[in-house]
Each structure stands twice: as structure tokens, then as C-alpha cells.
Simulated assay, not measured.
Amino acid sequence: MLTPEHLHHLRNLSLAARQAAEGFLNGAHASRRHGAGLEFSQYRPYQPGDDLRRLDWRLAARSDRYYLRESEVDTSLTVHLLLDASASMNHRDDNGLSKLDYARLLLAALAYLAHQQGDAVGLTILGPAGLRHLPPRADARQLPRLYHALETAEAAGRFPGAATLAPLTARRLRALTVCVSDLYEEDAEINTLLSRLRAVSGDVLLLHLMAGNELAFSYQGSVTLKDLETGQTLQLDADQQRPAYRQQLQAWLRDTAHAARSHGLDYHQLSTTNPLDQAMREFLRRRAAA
């Protein structure tokens, strides 16, 4: 299993996504149903109201009976990927990866998995300047579009406000929504958005991304911490504050997970030090249940 650092150092998002995802494509996650697809499965007798274009006229000429050709098609979903591109995603871990770097790799791998399953995949990048939106598609050129959008995404400012986010919940579109965010927010605006998407779209998988040095508070001695979104700074002794920090962090993580799940979100915490397999496994599990 390639580490996130190795994938990032490839400097090729398309290659990194394929390398990370291909190990998860063993085993058939796609189910089958009969319909008007391309791969022939069986005949069935014609019934009034059936589409005559599927009638096998040669068989009818030979047998004086009317049969329709049925085929097998993969079941597919609409997958809507959301990237939090607020400034806090610029936080960099000790391994050199920022949260945004990790999120790019993860969402690219999930897009690759979904595309291989025949799903229509879309992407929305949530930034203070507005929404960068690629509508869901299943055509061959969609992955390059998604990769380019992810590669050129930049994190800045604060999480967008309700007016900017309104188009996301303006109409009902059945989809599996996957959001990658560090949940740095002022007034539960991210959870509010995802709860509304849960109501209008269906399943929401929330991947809560934290940096390893945030979780461990691995800083040493006297440090100055800067809020990437407000610019405020705080000077402290890291060794002295570590026990209290860890205690408060664990309480916040418990409360955050509880709040998300109470709103019907499928919540999972990730670290930028973790391989991508945990998140891909959760995605495939959620997809299979959809």
C-alpha cells in the first residue's frame, strides 16, 4: 500500500488515483439487473407496452412468436464529491502533506473508483469566492476534468456562507455525497449544509480530515500557533499544554462525531498520516448499501 507521501511525490494525480484505487477493484462491487443494455442476457415474451425497438424480428420471423432481447447492465449511482477549500485546509503535517494535498489524492481515488463502477461523478469545490462545480457525468472525459479541478484547487479564506451554498440544496438530486473537510467552522455551517444535502439528496459520507500533528500535538517547547482563517496568533508552551489540549481535542472529536451521526451523516475521522485504503473501504461499503 503506497503511503500518501509516496502518492503525492508522483506529482501526477491521475497516476496516483489509479495506483491507490486499483487494489480495491478486485471483487465485483457492481450488481446486475436486466434491462436495455449492451451485453445480451436472455429473451422474454413480448408484453403490451414493451419497447418495440428491443423486439427480435429475426426470431419472430422464424418462430411466429414475439420476444424481446434483454441484457445485463451495471447498477450505477450518482456520486457527488465535495471539497472543503477554506484556508484551514492549508495546515501542513510533519510528513510535508497539507490537508488539501491529502484531500486531492483521496477525492481523485474515489472518483476513479466510482468511474470504474459506472457511476456518474461530480465535484464541487467549496471556497469563499464561490462554488466551483462540475456536474455529475459518466463519460470518458469526466475523470480528466475532475483531476484538473482538484490539481488547480487552492485553499483560502473561510468556509462559504449560506447564500453561496444555497444552489447545492436548491433541487433534489438523488446521489451519494462524499465530503472531505477538517470541519473548521464558526457556527456549524458545514454540518448544516450536509444535513440539508442529506434531506434532498440521500446518503452523505463525511470524511473528517485531521493532520497527524494536530491529533498528537507533536510540537515541542515554546511555539506560536496561527489561525489560518482569522490570522490570530497564540503563543504557548507546547509541552505544558499538551495534556489539556489532547483532553479537549478528544472531547471535541466525540461531540463532532455525535452531532454528525445524529443528523444522519455517515461520519468517519481520518488522519493525513493514514493510507487512503480506510476511506476507500468506507466509500465502497456506503456505495454497496445505497
Rank of each mutant, 00 (worst) to 15 (best):
E5F: 14
H8K: 10
H8R: 11
H9Q: 15
L13K: 09
S14R: 12
L15S: 12
A16G: 01
A16T: 09
A20H: 06
N26V: 13
H29Y: 12
R33G: 06
G37D: 12
E39N: 08
S41T: 09
Q42Y: 01
P45F: 08
P45H: 12
Y46K: 02
Q47W: 02
D50T: 04
R54E: 03
L55K: 05
R62D: 01
S63T: 15
E70I: 01
S71F: 14
T75W: 09
T75N: 10
L77Y: 07
T78A: 03
V79L: 11
H80Q: 13
A85Q: 06
M89G: 02
R92Y: 00
D93F: 01
D93G: 02
G96I: 07
Y102V: 09
R104G: 05
L106E: 11
L107N: 04
A108C: 04
A108D: 05
A109R: 05
L110C: 05
H115T: 08
H115I: 02
Q116R: 08
Q116V: 01
Q116C: 06
G118M: 00
G118F: 03
D119R: 07
G122I: 02
T124D: 14
G127H: 05
G127Q: 11
G127D: 07
G130V: 04
L131R: 00
L131S: 07
L134R: 00
P135W: 07
P136E: 00
R141N: 11
R141I: 00
Y147A: 13
Y147F: 12
H148E: 06
H148K: 13
E154F: 06
A156Q: 13
F159C: 01
T164L: 08
P167Y: 00
R171M: 02
R171W: 04
L173R: 15
R174K: 12
A175L: 10
L176W: 10
C179I: 09
V180H: 03
E185I: 01
D187L: 04
E189A: 14
E189K: 12
I190Y: 02
T192I: 11
L194V: 07
R196H: 12
A199S: 06
S201T: 08
S201P: 01
G202T: 06
V204Q: 05
L205P: 02
L207G: 08
M210H: 02
A211W: 00
L215G: 05
A216M: 09
F217Q: 12
F217T: 14
T224H: 03
D227A: 07
A238R: 13
A238Q: 09
Y245D: 05
R246N: 00
Q247H: 13
Q248D: 14
L249D: 14
A251E: 15
L253H: 11
H258K: 05
H258C: 07
H258V: 09
A260Q: 13
R261S: 07
H263Y: 02
G264L: 09
L265T: 10
L265G: 09
Y267I: 03
T272D: 05
T273D: 13
N274G: 00
L276H: 03
L276T: 04
D277S: 15
R281Q: 15
L284M: 12
R286Y: 03
R286A: 15
R286H: 10
R287F: 03
R287A: 08
A288G: 15
A289Y: 09
